[in-house]
Each structure stands twice: as structure tokens, then as C-alpha cells.
Design a binder for these strands. Structure first.
Lengths: 191, 191
DNA sequence: GATTTTACTTACTAATTAGTAAGTTTGTCA
DNA sequence: TGACAAACTTACTAATTAGTAAGTAAAATC
């Protein structure tokens, strides 16, 4: 028994990283197994199917996001700082070897992924959007933000541009991502 | 000799559609062959490798875009109408069975695609961005558009949000895409 | 100290993948 | 009429894929 310490978590970490790096169709059990120096079947022992593995990754991410936004360290922040924290999540993805948002990656492959996974992606997308919407509404109410349109559609614009620019940064460099973040701030911050 | 009329073009059409639908790793030669009722090898006869096929798809798309923007029907349009035409391209993708932008799709899979294809994606991305930038600058100069920041960063925001929202529409429906387009217009059109 | 459980390995399968080589049929052109 | 090229098919290969079944060694539990 060779045993990786905390195999399940290690596998989830690797799978999350691979999903953000190469997409669902871009990695295999062999990638994970070889990285952990175990055999393919060892991964199947912990996660019977690729669908189950990817679902577990998204569920863990959803839990994490939920914990973050309900934690006082973020909950009690001013709207502008909340937004900064949000952008920082993706800035960290970018710095971390050009990773992309899980939601965007899986939506590109949406027509090829299992149904259970689709539902998880949809949930994560809705939850992220909901938080952004509330944050924008709050900031507008308090005079920190200024924008036309509903908080919902502004949230959709911001989130989709972050997803898109993370992808764009793959071909055009990290600068493009940061440009989009700065433009978003400019477009929403009250003068 | 069964022969498809204009095989090369028919294959390119199908490959483009499959790329937008399922991504580079999400389709195979068998998908194209079976749709055209020919054997796999027939596709290899026209395009020796998957890389060559995908490159040809992007190159054709680039040519098409170049023709459009240099055509008087679009070149002579007012900036607002140019922007509407631009959004319309992607609205048509969306209507056409939830297709996604080629650039976004291939950038999600960027770390898994051949180098020659990466270069094509980068070129298409740059060319699209360049046209948008010029259009935004022109509109701002003529007073049709109003926005903070450079035309370049505003172009990056708009393009990445279109890409992102096209993907988002997969999980959340076409409404999300249209919401983002409308928000973009609101954020750029002079009151 | 014996038994059971956990975390694997070994050894597979069946399907799918991109790609190739050698033929075959049809149309074109000298 | 004969040569040749275009557009295929047949028949492969070698690699990779997700997934399974049966066995094994170590650790935990009784």
C-alpha cells in the first residue's frame, strides 16, 4: 500500500487544475494517475466515473464559494472591495499558469458533457451571478456604484467578460485580462 | 465514386459547426464522415490532419471577416450600426443551435491544440479586436459613443463579454446573451 | 492475534481516436 | 482510345480512452 496522503483531496485538486487547464475532454484518468504515481484504477476507486469526479470538483467549488461569501471577512466588506475580491479570484487563476474559469470551460464543452455535470455547472453559474447581482445592487444603493440597466444584466456582463478575458489571455497574454478588469471597474465605479 | 458536391466546402462547413458546437476535442473525423455518408479516409484525403482541417476553418473565417469589414455595406455604416452588425453575428450563432465563438472555444482548449492552430486563433482574435477598437474610437470621436478608458480596453471588454455570454447562454438560456448585449449597448451609447 | 476495511495493483476489455497504404471507380483530356 | 488524376473505399495500425474484476498488502478494529 503506497498511499497518497489524503488521496481524495489530492485527486480533486489535480482534477480541478486539469479542468481549468485543458477542459473536460482534454484530460484523462491517466493524467491524474501518472501525476500521483499510481495506476488508473486507483483513481476509479475514489471516483467511479469521470462524471462523478468532475461533479465532485464543482460541488467542492460551490461549497467553497458559499463559505467565502458568507464569511464575515467578505460579507462585511464595502461593495467596491467585494468587487475587488471577486476580480482577485480570477486574477489568481490567471497568475496560476493561465487557468480559466470552470464555468466557462465546461460551458464551451456543454454539448459533450454528462447531464449531471451540466446541472452542477448551471448551479455554480447561477450562484455566482446571484452574488454579483446583490453586490452590485447594494453598491448602487449606497452610491458606490453607478450604472445603467439592472444589477442582473450588469452582473451578467461583468461575469461573462471575466470568463471571456481569462480565455483571451491564453492567446493574447495576461495584460488583456487586466485591461478588461480595469475597464469593468471604470464602468461601474461612481466618479 | 459517390462524391459529395463541393466536398471541401461541405467538410469545412461541418467542421466549423462542430468546432462551435463541441470544441476541438469534442468532435472526430467519424462525426464528419458519417454526417456526409462517406468513410473517415475521405476526410483525410481533403484534409490530411485534424490540425490542417481546423486551421482551414479559421483561415476561411478570417477571410470572411476581412471581406465583410472591407465591404461598403458595413464600412459605410455609422458606428452604432457597425456595433449592431457585430452583435448580430453572435446573435446568429446563438440562434443557430447555441453555437459559441470559435475564438472562445479554442482558447478554452488552448493548452491542448496544435501550435499552428494556436497561431490562427491568435490572429483572428487580434483582427476582431482591432476592428472593434477602430470602430469604438471612430464612434467616440463622432460623439455616437461615450465611455471611459481606451477604445482598446473597451473593445476587449465588449468582445470578451460576448464570448463569455455566448457560453453562459448554454447553461442559462439565450436571454442571458441578449441581456449582455443590451447592457453593452447601454454602457457605450451616448445618452 | 484474527478479521475486516481501505487503498491500492495487475490485468483486462471494448470503444474510439487520428492517421496510413493500397486499391477502385469515375471523369477529363490529349 | 489510353493515360492520368480526382475522389473516393477497404482494410489496416498503434495509441488512448473510460471503465471493470479480481487479487494483495497494510492499517484499523475487535
Amino acid at each position: 500500500m503506497v498511499k497518497i496522503e489524503n488521496s481524495k483531496r489530492t485527486i480533486l485538486n489535480l482534477a480541478e487544475s486539469l479542468l481549468q487547464d485543458r477542459g473536460f475532454n482534454g484530460f484523462s484518468y491517466a493524467d491524474i494517475a501518472s501525476a500521483l504515481n499510481v495506476k488508473n484504477a486507483a483513481i476509479h476507486y475514489h471516483f467511479p466515473s469521470k462524471e462523478a469526479l468532475a461533479i465532485a470538483v464543482i460541488q467542492r467549488y460551490r461549497e467553497r464559494f458559499k463559505l467565502w461569501i458568507n464569511n464575515a471577512r467578505i460579507k462585511d466588506l464595502a461593495p467596491q472591495e467585494k468587487l475587488n475580491w471577486f476580480f482577485k479570484i480570477y486574477e489568481d487563476f490567471r497568475v496560476n499558469n493561465g487557468k480559466v474559469c470552470l464555468v466557462g470551460a465546461l460551458e464551451v464543452e456543454f454539448n459533450t458533457i454528462p447531464d449531471g455535470l451540466k446541472k452542477e455547472v448551471e448551479s455554480l453559474n447561477r450562484e455566482t451571478l446571484a452574488w454579483l447581482e446583490v453586490t452590485l445592487a447594494e453598491g448602487k444603493k449606497h452610491g458606490a456604484f453607478q450604472f445603467n440597466g439592472t444589477p442582473a444584466s450588469k452582473a451578467a456582463l461583468i461575469y461573462s467578460s471575466v470568463q471571456g478575458s481569462l480565455q483571451m489571455a491564453r492567446a493574447l497574454g495576461a495584460k488583456k485580462f487586466r485591461e478588461v478588469v480595469e475597464q469593468n471597474k471604470m464602468d461601474v465605479l461612481a466618479a
